[in-house]
Simulated scan of single mutants.
Amino acid sequence: MLEKNSSIPLYNQLIDVLIEYIKMNLNDDEKMLSEREICLKYDVSRTTVRAALNELEEMGYIFKRHGKGTFVSGLWKEMQNLSDAYSFTEQMKQMGKVPHTQVVSLEELAANQFVAKHLGVEEGERVYKMKRLRSAEDMKMMYETTFIPAYLFPDLTISKLESMPLYELFPRLYNQDIKYADEEFYASVLQEKESEKLGLPAGSACLRIRRTTYSQENEIIEYTLSVARGDQFVYKIRHSKK
């Protein structure tokens, strides 16, 4: 049950409880408990319930049918292994290519206003900034700049980053399991410095990707800006229409 004196917000607790309820009691396309039923069952306010349901919808556990109510979605099953869904390493392997990641740099610094905003931390808080060059079959594919909060990843080193993919490092060394990630991407052209990193002429087509990754506690644990070569990198998305 929910612990109202816990430091974990009620809606976060409710999300976990409802996920377990869905997995144990409901099938795909079956009608979900109503807001009122959830309020009564777990003794929480409608505001808390709505916040939890909104997140469950974003996570692929439920979907809404206009005028009919809320139903269970099977989309979460497809998204269960987020390491696969968001891993460059796994994506390249699936394409039959040998992936390689070079950690170009790692530094600890104070978050400026931009970084603080996107990591959900206070301006001036310590963060790690890393730059990585991602390749496949010796072809440079993507250049990434990643920011992560230093307090969640103490004593992070280049050797640790080189020992395993980032999304394996998060849970194995720091007990930070990924809940979900939001991504935005758009077509662009390479600037001069970027073209040097990827070995392409300036002005070449590229794909720009912005990713914000969240932990199971709904904390932002990663903000990454990527530029990928447009002539080789294929970005796959599955849309589910209910």
Results as ranks from 00 to 15, higher is better:
154 P>T: 05
113 Q>E: 15
120 G>P: 04
143 Y>I: 12
130 M>L: 15
153 F>E: 02
159 S>Q: 15
117 K>E: 14
141 M>I: 09
113 Q>V: 13
162 E>W: 00
159 S>E: 09
170 F>R: 06
165 P>M: 06
164 M>L: 10
144 E>W: 07
119 L>A: 07
133 L>P: 07
119 L>K: 00
155 D>L: 13
176 Q>N: 06
128 Y>D: 06
149 P>N: 07
181 A>Q: 08
117 K>W: 13
140 K>W: 06
164 M>R: 07
168 E>C: 05
181 A>D: 01
121 V>K: 02
154 P>L: 14
110 A>W: 09
144 E>F: 02
176 Q>P: 04
171 P>H: 03
116 A>K: 02
131 K>T: 15
134 R>Y: 08
168 E>A: 11
146 T>S: 12
171 P>A: 10
145 T>Q: 05
162 E>Y: 00
127 V>T: 01
158 I>R: 03
153 F>R: 01
154 P>A: 10
125 E>C: 05
137 E>W: 12
141 M>K: 04
129 K>L: 14
115 V>P: 04
127 V>P: 01
110 A>H: 14
173 L>Q: 03
172 R>K: 15
165 P>I: 01
179 K>V: 08
136 A>P: 13
176 Q>I: 14
140 K>F: 10
129 K>H: 05
151 Y>E: 03
119 L>C: 03
133 L>T: 09
163 S>A: 14
151 Y>N: 04
109 L>D: 15
181 A>I: 10
123 E>V: 06
117 K>D: 15
169 L>D: 00
150 A>K: 01
169 L>M: 09
141 M>P: 02
180 Y>C: 09
147 F>A: 01
